[in-house]
């Protein structure tokens, strides 16, 4: 293998299965479709893979209005029309008005690039189908200039999805699929360790305990995820909250300090407060 293997980076903890998935996708040149709870580092994965393998990263963020064609190229007819009015010489070459998209740029890269197609499920339901040939053969045709664009180096393609729409079978068949599981306590400790190396042991333990207890609360609309935990710990450190404060909340079942970083939804906060209220009443 000429490629170095991906094993995670200094600030990104990759589990064994994720490492294997990335390396398989790199080796076989297949797109890797990544799903998982929000906040488990799906988008970050592409950045870290690019960083770890020292490859350039091309990001294509998908919105509900994004068309597949926009990733390849767009023909700026309006500029050409305007230039023709002004008698500009550029107008004779249609190639001057072909605006390259992110996929094209990635195809032109001198070294193997990493291409991130972020949140593919946001786009129209037909969007993935329009990219089948491009992902399969790594080439596309520019009708305006009769030019076939081929990838110089097969990019490492990482696609993320939040499961808002189902993806078509034909598309899925061409991808590798990895589901990022919510990290277990041990992995989470490693993750927090990577981000806050000097965190005191007892604070970390208490914080993780509160965090996992909160995730267990039934009926939460949005369970707090890794990124929220990291934000929360950052706040705890900034406010210099001692570990005892957290433990205290655990015993008396009060709302953890600075819970706003963990619960992002008004209903969830209400639900949580209600549960605590009932709990305290029962305890009496």
């Amino acid at each position: 293998m000429s490629n170095p293997r991906f094993t995670g980076t200094e600030r990104y903890v990759a589990t064994d299965d994720l490492t294997l998935s990335v390396n398989a996708a790199v080796t076989l040149g297949r797109p890797l479709l990544v799903k998982g709870e929000p906040g488990t580092g799906k988008t970050q994965l592409a950045e870290e893979v690019a960083l770890a393998l020292r490859l350039p990263l091309f990001e294509w963020h998908i919105k509900s209005t994004t068309k597949a064609q926009q990733g390849l190229y767009e023909y700026d007819a309006v500029s050409r029309l305007r230039d023709s009015q002004l008698g500009d010489d550029r107008v004779k070459d249609i190639g001057n008005y072909i605006v390259r998209g992110r996929v094209w740029e990635a195809f032109l890269s001198d070294v193997q690039p990493v291409l991130l197609i972020d949140e593919i499920d946001k786009a129209d339901i037909e969007f993935p189908n329009d990219l089948l040939r491009e992902l399969d053969r790594m080439e596309f045709f520019v009708y305006e200039t009769r030019e076939l664009v081929k990838a110089r180096h097969r990019p490492v393609i990482i696609i993320t999805s939040n499961n808002e729409k189902e993806l078509p079978d034909a598309f899925l068949r061409r991808c590798f699929f990895h589901y990022i599981r919510f990290p277990d306590a041990a992995t989470m400790e490693r993750i927090v360790d990577v981000h806050f190396p000097n965190l005191k042991r007892d604070l970390l333990r208490e914080a993780l305990q509160s965090f996992y207890a909160l995730r267990e609360v039934p009926g939460l609309k949005k369970k707090p995820s890794t990124s929220e935990l990291l934000d929360w710990i950052k706040l705890l450190l900034a406010e210099d909250i001692p570990a005892e404060a957290l433990r205290e909340t655990d015993a008396k079942k009060m709302i953890p300090p600075l819970y706003g970083a963990l619960l992002k939804n008004e209903q969830d906060v209400h639900l949580f407060e209600q549960l605590l209220f009932m709990h305290r009443r029962n305890a009496r």
């Binding site: 064994d16 299965d17 294997l20 998935s21 398989a24 479709l33 899925l172 068949r173 991808c175 590798f176 699929f177 990895h178």
Partner: peptide, 13 residues
């Protein structure tokens, strides 16, 4: 590893 690899290739949901 074989378990992960098989799942990566064969299961898409």
């Amino acid at each position: 590893d074989f378990y992960w690899l098989g799942r990566l290739c064969l299961v898409k949901d």
